[in-house]
Design a binder for these strands. Structure first.
Lengths: 231, 231
DNA sequence: GGCAGAGGTTTTATCGAAATTATTCCCTCG
DNA sequence: CGAGGGAATAATTTCGATAAAACCTCTGCC
């Protein structure tokens, strides 16, 4: 009976982290739009928590960059303008490009095998739950994440990998904010295949170039979509 | 009279941020050693604040990576082992290397001038307050920070720059933790000069290589010092 | 007609106490 | 003599209330 409530609480030992996780998901999924005022009292009521855990959750989100805090004036959902998207994408290209180059240089046999496996699983997963219209498949999303993590995992720079993960999340937020669901005229699966092949062939220049294209194309789609929707 | 107290509070509108700043300085300077247990009640007493702002400050530090939180078990100062130092330095080399390459590629006349100016100011500042023995000069530290920021500023990737700043802080913490004050057999000023020259000459390969050497040498000194002190 | 200022309202930030959870220490049992 | 269980202790986490700050509105004045 209490299972329904413990659903979120089972993995989150404390209310503050549970609220943090939910709030984070609501921001990343776009349910809370950029710039939205986050009134402590309203949030506490709708999330069923007191002011203290709520405030702590917001504080953490602000430190992560997903929210903005103005002292004595409360919290807002972080802004997400097309202009910031450019900086985000360039950061991704530079950070992941450097990590990938290093991973290709330093990767051992275990790295190759993990990458091969991640690519295989990504190819097996269905991109959409519905063959007719696009419905995001959580399984594919998970494999996609793992694939990109596997690419970089051998770079030997944990802080850089954590940063890449954060940028990935932020990029996912932009994707959710735009109306972009599918990418017409693109074969994303093929892009992953040739990217993995270049990495396994230790062709760093080629792999980094492909990775950059991969992100810049996606960014162009999303930027165009957001630009049309706002400006 | 109240000036003495408002010293910290003048710039920090809220107690939580004031405590956050002080705690952060205490960790970065090494006054709070790695792994140190941070008991809420004790901290609240010594920093003169209640539990709520204290907790919020710790929460932010944990999100920044300067503290570690275990739910229901409180906070600790983030660990700082020599092994982690390697990952940190590699992250710096990769992230700043990529940013520097991009800045050299994209930098305009304004970037060149800002870099030239930052280098000039760094050279004018005294490294030590005392000519006989090393006493850290805050002015030099500030110029040093500005110089490295100026190098990368034209990369057009604000999130990446913010990440580099964070890594720089973390590195500074390791320097404070080790007994390393000066670097025997090194002319740090000369390293900065040739680095700036390579960047202004748009020699990306040379500049990135010099930057990597700059960080790896420092890391070797600190790592050796920490290794001898701990293990 | 527009602007400055005062008072009331809303919202944030902080405190102090209660509830929940981990840790410790001791006592009993094998 | 060591191990396991169980209260006492200490710590973290959360709630409710209070104080302080910002916002809004309404009035009076130029």
């Amino acid at each position: 009976m209490s299972q329904a409530f413990s659903f979120a609480d089972a993995r989150d030992p404390t209310l503050a982290t549970a609220v943090h996780r939910r709030l984070r998901e609501d921001i990343l999924s776009g349910r809370l739009p950029p710039g939205q005022k986050l009134k402590l009292r309203d949030l506490a009521e709708s999330y069923g928590a007191g002011a203290s855990p709520m405030r702590e959750a917001l504080s953490r989100l602000a430190a992560e960059g997903l929210a903005e805090q103005i002292e004595h004036r409360g919290f807002r959902v972080a802004a997400a303008a097309p202009g910031q998207l450019h900086g985000l994408i360039r950061s991704r290209v530079l950070a992941e490009g450097a990590a990938l180059r290093e991973a290709i240089l330093r990767g051992d046999a275990a790295w190759e095998e993990a990458l091969l496996l991640a690519e295989h699983r990504l190819n097996r997963a269905a991109r959409s739950l519905d063959p007719n219209r696009f419905v995001s498949n959580p399984d594919w999303e998970a494999c996609h994440l793992r694939f990109h993590q596997a690419l970089l995992s051998a770079c030997g720079a944990p802080p850089l990998l954590a940063f890449c993960d954060r940028l990935r999340e932020e990029a996912q937020r932009y994707r959710a904010l735009s109306n972009t669901l599918a990418y017409p005229g693109r074969d994303v699966a093929a892009e992953h295949v040739i990217l993995a092949r270049a990495a396994l062939n230790r062709d760093a220049d080629e792999a980094v170039a492909l990775l950059a294209q991969h992100y810049e194309r996606t960014g162009a789609f999303i930027g165009a979509d957001m630009g049309s929707g706002i400006g």
